[in-house]
Simulated assay, not measured.
Amino acid sequence: MIGKFRKIAYPLHVMLLPGLIVIAIFSYGPMVGIVIAFQNFNPTKGLFGSNWVGLEHFRYVYSLPDTYNVIRNTLVISSMKLVVDLVVTIGTALLLNEIRLKLFKRSIQTIIYLPHFLSWVILSGILIDVLSPNTGMLNEFLAWLGFKRIFFLGNENWFPFVLVGTNTWKEFGFGTIVYLAALTGINPALYEAAVLDGASRWKQTLHITLPGITPIIVLMLTLSVGNILNAGFDQVFNMYGPAVYSTGDILDTFVYRTALINAQLSVATAVGLFKSVISCFLISASYLIAYRLANYRIF
Rank of each mutant, 00 (worst) to 15 (best):
L96A: 08
W202V: 08
I126S: 12
A182Q: 04
F58R: 11
A263T: 02
S107D: 04
L82V: 01
T209D: 05
H57A: 06
G91T: 05
F274K: 03
Y287V: 07
A9E: 15
L94P: 01
V32G: 09
G198Q: 12
L145A: 15
F161E: 06
W169D: 07
S63C: 03
K102L: 05
I298R: 15
Y296T: 06
K4T: 02
I208H: 03
G46K: 13
S50Y: 10
A294Y: 09
A231H: 01
S79A: 14
L260C: 00
I126R: 12
F233G: 07
T168R: 12
K45S: 07
F58D: 02
T74F: 03
I2P: 00
S284I: 02
G46D: 13
E171P: 00
V178H: 07
I298C: 09
T89Q: 15
E140C: 05
L131I: 03
L131F: 14
S266W: 01
V271L: 09
L219N: 15
I23H: 11
F48I: 05
F117Y: 15
G198K: 12
V88I: 13
L95F: 13
V14F: 15
S78H: 03
I177V: 12
Y62G: 04
H207K: 10
A270N: 03
G29E: 02
N134S: 14
Y179A: 07
V32M: 15
